[in-house]
Design a protein around this nucleic acid. Structure first.
Lengths: 202, 202, 202, 202
DNA sequence: AATGAATGAGAATTCATTCAT
DNA sequence: GATGAATGAATTCTCATTCAT
């Protein structure tokens, strides 16, 4: 594409207002956490986002598509945070530690996103925005755990179960804490890590 | 209207009574699992239960009351199942084993109830039928675990966290399995119990 | 069904208010004639009929079903009027005369119904309430015309074409007249009948 | 922006010009035949025409104006076709023959236009794009028929009625045929002409 | 001239609930 | 107790149209 053609496109096109899309995103996440799926309406979302409800349909095909898109976006962010600093090369024990720290970090700093995701992943298939869950998106780290199993450090069996057990245990405890507006002390974090480790190690 | 006709009416009504309530109950649980909170409507419930939607209002004050009642009822059944055979006197290790077996048993045999509960407990405070969750209802067993801590068998700290970690870890794994229409082998059950035990024991 | 059972049904059931249904019917016909398909809305119909728009959905499944039902009902009335006094036994010439008189009578006295039908039958397949048109419903009279053909009184060929030609010629002329708020003189009626007769006779 | 870029823009725009208007035209006619007035939307038209819906407003003031313009244009084309070869000087019988042949020719070759017109002319006054109908536009030929009446060849009375009767009879039969995806044989055309002639001649 | 974004108004339809029987 | 009818309020979504570019 030549520079002239590019200018032409820019001249004719009007770029979607990213602020609006962002506002809609945030409104959805906020509201779902406040009112739940049963009471989440397009008009409420629009009002909260400060746009007309028809504007939502500029960005999404319909309610289902909207929720799916937001859910996938949030999950992508979440998995990104989760895997930060967890390279293939690090030892299992350290990987586990980092994962849990990242998980708690995300839960504490991005609480709205965290609760939003949890609600979505517990909705039934048909209502659920997308049925690929967070565990599936963590496939990159499975290799670390499988190596741990091969080395005889971790319990044998399905590595998904090992990881899933820890992940959900920690997740639910974090949810309970946050629902009561509480925080984790360093020693509590250590305890959680220890529980996870004991659960999966041989 | 003759006396005979009146009696007939009364006869007809009373007979159906409990069946109707039961049918409504089952319809709610089935439907919530199929369509989720976002799409659960009174008319659908009525249709599924084979009654008029106004009939629902004979048994419940309104939608909120209806969901709360059903949720509490299901939870009561669940906790009943969970605690079966878990007396104060038995050793911690055995208590843990029994709890997990009961939990998996319930999940497998009363799957609809199990999923129903999970959805309810993940709804946000405001939307949630009732915010007392299953963990709270298990208070009777805490003493067993506290005794275990006092004896130095279990890790110290909040006994709720110990139990909650295991409970949710197992619950989520059961959910994943059931969503894929799979079952647990005996050895898998053993593995889960072992993971739980390792997680909480000193 | 015994008398007692019947009483029971009457006791429990509440009969649909036929006035309401009738009011909705009339509102649809009136409005379609006033505003056309492009501007016919459920809320307008409801307002005109003096009911809530949700009430319409008690009687009809949706807009399409509603229009189809009304169209079929009007057509039935129309064909009834059209065939009045046209028995199999009467001579063709007289049958033709009676049909045209009936048609004009209907157009003049039930003008709203008449225009309503015409609009429906000109809508395209997908939008059209039902694609069986008035001609199809007149099959009973075809035999009279076929007899006329066999006797050598009428032109040979497809009897549907003979009848259809006359029917639509007269219909459109009636429409034009009525649109200009005019009436037919007796001599004009005679002329029309003569034109029809000349068109189809040998 | 440089002068070159500006020229480019002007060049690009002008080139598309007539194509776009034509595309919009065709889209309207196609769509009206497919979905009817009740479901004809600007956005659909735009999509079908391959333009942005705001582009329609470059060519037309609004929806009403758009439909009126297209209708008038189509009618002009139609009347042009209809009158081809029908000069004032030719005998009535021949004029009638030519008119019917032209009408059928148009119906067969420009079917979409034909149906489009029919739908428009059956819409109620208020909704109708323009209430001057095809008959009005044929005024030039009336003189031929009036001469026929003066010579005693045709029936006396309103010449509009004579012509209208034939025109609509043929039109509707053509519509029925085309809706069933059928064609006219030469003998059928002859029969139609004969019916028309018999209907109006003395 | 052309268009993507944006929107208020309004579309069809559903909802939870009430009511007379 | 049970229900069909009825409905106001709310739902999701579409519409015709405008506007900045």
């Amino acid at each position: 594409m030549t520079v002239i053609e590019q200018s032409l496109i820019i001249f004719f096109m009007r770029v979607k207002d990213e602020n609006k899309k962002e506002a809609i995103f945030e409104a959805i996440i906020e509201l779902l956490n406040e009112v739940g799926f049963a009471n989440l309406s397009m008009s409420q979302i629009a009002k909260r986002a400060g746009v007309s409800s028809s504007t939502i349909y500029v960005y999404f095909e319909n309610k289902e598509d909207m929720l799916k898109t937001v859910y996938m976006d949030v999950k992508k962010k979440f998995v990104g945070s989760l895997l930060q600093g967890v390279e293939q090369s690090i030892p299992v024990r350290q990987a586990m530690e980092k994962l849990i720290q990242n998980l708690l970090e995300f839960a504490l700093t991005q609480t709205a996103y965290f609760f939003f995701m949890e609600q979505c992943s517990n909705a039934p298939m048909k209502a659920q925005p997308s049925n690929v869950d967070a565990i599936d998106m963590m496939k990159p780290v499975f290799k670390i755990f499988e190596k741990g199993q091969q080395k005889g450090i971790l319990k044998p069996g399905d590595s998904v179960i090992l990881l899933s057990f820890c992940y959900h245990g920690v997740t639910q405890i974090a949810k309970d804490k946050l629902k009561r507006d509480q925080c984790f002390s360093d020693s509590e974090v250590k305890e959680l890590i220890q529980m996870c480790w004991d659960a999966i190690r041989k």
